[in-house]
Structures are given as C-alpha cells and as structure tokens.
C-alpha cells in the first residue's frame, strides 16, 4: 500500500484511516480477551487434555475409559433425567403458558404466573433440594400428610426422592417455569386471524392446532426443550444436595473426580468434561439444524 503513495497524496490520510479501524477493533478487544481467557481458553485446554496422558503425550486411552460401565451408566442416567425433565417440563410448561395466554382466564393470571416463573426458574440448586426434601422426603409434609390423612405410604410404592423420578420431579420445578417464560411470548405470536381464517375454511379447533398453530410454534417448543435438556444436564448442586453421591449422574461423578473424592485421574476427568460438552453441543446443534428446517417459512 505504501508503494502507491506519492508525495502529492497526503500520506497521513490512509494511516489515520487504518488507525481508526484498529481503534474500532480495539473497542471490542477487552470482551474478546475476556472470553478467550475465562471461557474459550480453559474449555479448550480441557478438550486438549482429554486426548493427553499424564505426561502430555497424545492418547485415546481417556476416551476408551469413558466406556467403563459405571461411566456409561452415569451418562445414561444423566441423559435420562435431563430428557425426562426437559420433555415433561416442556409439556407442562406449554400447558401452563397456553392456559395463561390463550385460555381466556382472568387478566391477573398471566402476570402472576410470569412473575412466579421468573422466581422459580432461578430457584434451583441447594435450596431447591431442601424444599423437596422437606416436602416429599421421608418426613416431608406431603409424605406425612398422605400417611396421616389417607394411610397412604408414599415410600411403600417404591417412590424415592433420591431416585431417577425424584430427581426429575425436582428438576421440573425450574424446568417448567423456564418453558413458560420462553413460550408465552411465542404464543402471543399466534395471530387470532389465523384461527379465524382456519375456522371459516371449515377447520375444527384440533385441525387448526394440527396444521397451523403447532407447526408455527414447533421451533420454539423444540428449541426450548433442548435448552431445558442442556440446563438439566449441566446441573450439579440440586442433585448433589439431594442425593449426595448416591445417584450416579455424570455431573456428580465429575464433581467427585475434581474434588479428588474418588480415583484421581485428571485426564479421565477431562474426557468426562469433553463428553458433557459433546452432548450439550449436539443437542444445541440438533436444535439449530431442526430449527433451520422448521423455519424455512420465516425470514
């Protein structure tokens, strides 16, 4: 560039311009530096570590170790709990959002539900597990009341809060509200005219949902469900405080691994982490792909 400059042209001009452009990029430098140092860098180092042995040599041994039965089962339970709580959360959340937005209920219902959802979706972790222990634990209010009022022993039925269903039931407490929060605006996007147009063309209410409303909402429902899945899959605190180490889910396995409670094999830990990122990454990737297909009729 400098070669084309002649004395007749002010040399300073392009320099100022490129300087200004550098300054423009400088404006976002702190953010990218921060993201690199505290988000991308550390995660990337884990991914590298997953393919290294203790001496830093390349190996696939850690990946192979992921196939140990207890690790596979940990992943499997995690996936089951996450999937169950995501699908049920999406279904019940949809029902609640539908009732509040389109159900023709009094006006106060909606803001109350939305505010409560904002609170409940953030009421996760340790205190949530306390709340469920105090309610459905062996001495919990509901357990005791069922026993005293109906002579019904909840725990005789095989129910256990420290189990797959117990954990799923607990996770639903933040999953359902999250679905409500995201889906209510999407339900607002359904134009009343669509329903009227379909009705006047002879469609029943069910046919309207089947052919119009549900296909329009599908990307939002699917996307939120996958978000709920990732949300549950990465959760540690609720399960840890609820079940201690008795329920073998992958986050608790990794937690114990990091704390050095169990066998101390750092590189296996990296592989565990890689597996987790893969699963949340795949669920998000699937969401993006499906969404692109479902949304080809949107801008």
């Amino acid at each position: 560039m400098a070669q084309t400059e002649t004395t007749s042209l002010p040399i300073a001009a392009p320099r100022v311009r490129s300087g200004a452009r550098a300054a423009t990029w400088l404006g976002v430098a702190p953010f990218f530096l921060f993201a690199l140092m505290f988000l991308i860098g550390p995660t990337f180092m884990l991914l590298i570590g997953a393919f290294q042995d203790a001496e830093g040599q390349f190996t696939l041994a850690n990946m192979a170790k992921l196939l140990q039965p207890n690790i596979v089962s940990a992943y499997w339970i995690s996936i089951k709990v996450s999937a169950a709580s995501a699908v049920l959360g999406a279904a019940f959340g949809f029902g609640l959002a539908y009732a509040a937005v389109l159900g023709g209920l009094p006006r106060f219902v909606r803001p109350v539900l939305m505010t409560f959802s904002g609170v409940a979706s953030n009421f996760a972790g340790i205190p949530l597990s306390f709340a469920f222990l105090a309610t459905l634990g062996r001495l919990g209010l509901v357990t005791v009341l069922l026993m005293e009022l109906f002579g019904f022993n909840l725990y005789r039925t095989g129910f256990n809060l420290l189990s797959f269903w117990g954990l799923t039931l607990t996770y639903l407490y933040f999953q359902i509200p999250l679905m409500v929060l995201i889906l209510a605006p999407a339900l607002d996007g359904l134009k009343p005219e669509w329903r009227e147009a379909s009705s006047i063309l002879g469609a029943s209410g069910w046919q309207y949902w089947r052919h119009v409303a549900f296909p329009v909402l599908w990307p939002a429902i699917l996307g939120t469900t996958l978000l709920l899945f990732a949300n549950a899959f990465g959760a540690v605190a609720t399960a840890y405080a609820l079940t201690g180490s008795s329920l073998n889910i992958v986050t608790i396995l990794l937690y114990a691994q990091i704390r050095g409670d169990v066998l101390h094999d750092q590189n296996l830990g990296y592989a565990l982490a890689l597996g987790m990122i893969l699963i949340t990454g795949i669920s998000n990737g699937a969401y993006i792909l499906l969404r692109a297909r479902a949304e080809r009729w949107l801008r």
Partner: peptide
C-alpha cells in the same frame, strides 16, 4: 458476540470451573 455470550448455556459450569483449575 451473541454466540460467545450464549456459550455458557452449552458449557456446563462444572466443566468451566474444571477448565479454570487446569488453566
């Protein structure tokens, strides 16, 4: 930038802190 800000939803906190401990 939007993608980066959404990454914490994909990377579980436990993985993030594990990365810190190594990094």
């Amino acid at each position: 930038v939007e993608f980066i800000t959404l990454m914490p939803l994909i990377i579980p906190p436990i993985v993030l802190v594990f990365g810190y401990l190594r990094f």
